[in-house]
Simulated scan of single mutants.
Amino acid sequence: MITRLAEEVTLRPRNGSIRDVARQAGVSIATVSRVFNDAASVSPDTRARIIDAAALLSYEPSSLGRNLVRGRSYLVGLIVPNISVPLYGTMLHGIEDVLAQHKMSALLGSSLDRSDTEIQVAQGLLGHSVDAGIVINSRVGVALPVQRMPDWVHISPEIADLPYRVELDNEKGGRLAALELLAAGHRAIGYVGAVGRESAERERGFAQELALAGLDYRRATGDYSETSGLEAGQEMLREPLDAVFVAGDLMAAGVLRALHDAGLSVPSQVAVIGFDDSLIAPLLYPRLTSVRQPAYEMGAAAAQLALDLINQKPATPKTFMPQIVRRESTRAFS
């Protein structure tokens, strides 16, 4: 279960209290506490008497209290740049599924794509005594308060050499996109990227494959939003081109709109490849060919890595391989 950082938690039992249970069973409050924290030092008869008294009074021990006694919160802090982005939602799904298998929950905070907010959210999560943390696309990396919690797992951080990270081979993804367009015979090619390590790596692989084919390319820059993709697409169309590789599916949606507004047919006149294969890719018209980033699997891997750190097991970085998902925006389907 994912809980928002700002939600309030009710701590007071709705029915009988621990004091009432102790009085009903004829024992001390400390003995009742030991029973509900699985202490083996309480005799079977006393344990049974306390359990019966708790049932009679409809008493349920506070999970928060038990966890504090055990030195665990059973919470994993989670920082997301923007919860409205479909890719991140899919990652959250993977994280939640793995944590639920281990009876743990995620406490969620959004950094709103701002580095200062990311640090504030991290400090807030630490204030809730989370057992570990996962941060997606961290802008600040080692500037997080890691001295108070070293067990942060990073999904695709801007800083590449953080010890516990889950990421995609973005350079390989760029190569796949270039090879796909080259195989279809495209020669006047553009790239729409964004600021940051991921886009730079995608462009590097893309550029290397085009260079091997003796080709250059035009480029424009957006910010992963549909609006920036529209503007980048309009800029690209100042000169003729027959294919565009876009570093994110939302930007690719904007590029498709720019091509439609210009009266150009996709893919017969201009082919388009996006990146991520997010939930919107098959909903666009034409349906978008995209380099798949396995977001669910990456989220699940990050959650498992966080659990390994909590349980003091060996934890190593994990890199996923991209693949092309072909749809009607490229010539194979024209």
Rank of each mutant, 00 (worst) to 15 (best):
M1T: 12
I2T: 12
R4K: 15
L5S: 10
A6C: 10
E8D: 12
L11K: 15
R12F: 10
P13W: 05
R14P: 02
G16A: 02
S17T: 15
D20Y: 07
V21H: 02
S28G: 13
I29S: 00
I29H: 01
I29A: 01
A30K: 12
T31G: 02
T31E: 00
V32Y: 01
R34P: 07
N37I: 09
D38C: 09
A39D: 15
A40F: 01
S41I: 10
V42G: 06
S43G: 14
R49D: 04
I50M: 05
D52C: 00
A53Y: 01
L56N: 03
P61Q: 08
S62E: 06
S63G: 11
G71Q: 13
S73Q: 06
V76Y: 00
S84F: 12
S84V: 08
V85Y: 08
P86C: 03
L87Q: 01
Y88W: 03
H93I: 09
H93R: 13
A100Y: 02
Q101S: 10
M104N: 06
M104S: 04
M104T: 08
G109Y: 04
S111E: 15
T117K: 13
V121S: 15
Q123K: 14
Q123T: 12
L126K: 11
G127I: 10
G127E: 13
I134G: 09
I136P: 05
V142G: 11
L144F: 08
V146M: 15
P157V: 07
P157F: 12
I159L: 07
I159F: 08
D161W: 04
L162Q: 11
P163V: 14
Y164A: 12
V166I: 15
L168M: 13
D169C: 09
G173D: 08
A178D: 13
A183K: 15
A183W: 04
I189W: 03
G190Q: 03
V192A: 10
G193K: 06
G193W: 05
G193I: 13
G196H: 01
R197D: 04
A200G: 04
E201S: 03
E203K: 09
R204S: 11
L210W: 10
A211M: 12
G214Q: 08
L215M: 10
D216Y: 01
Y217R: 01
R218F: 01
R219N: 02
T221D: 01
E226T: 15
S228P: 07
L230Y: 14
A232H: 02
G233W: 01
G233R: 06
L237D: 02
P240L: 09
F245Q: 09
F245P: 06
G248R: 05
A253Y: 03
L256G: 06
L256P: 05
L264S: 03
S265W: 00
V266L: 10
P267S: 05
Q269H: 14
A271W: 07
V272S: 09
G274E: 07
G274Q: 09
D276V: 06
S278L: 09
L279H: 08
S290F: 05
V291E: 08
R292V: 08
A295E: 05
Y296I: 09
M298P: 03
G299Y: 07
Q304F: 02
L305H: 05
L307M: 13
L309D: 02
K313E: 15
T316F: 15
K318M: 13
I324D: 11
R327C: 04
S329Y: 03
A332D: 13
A332G: 11
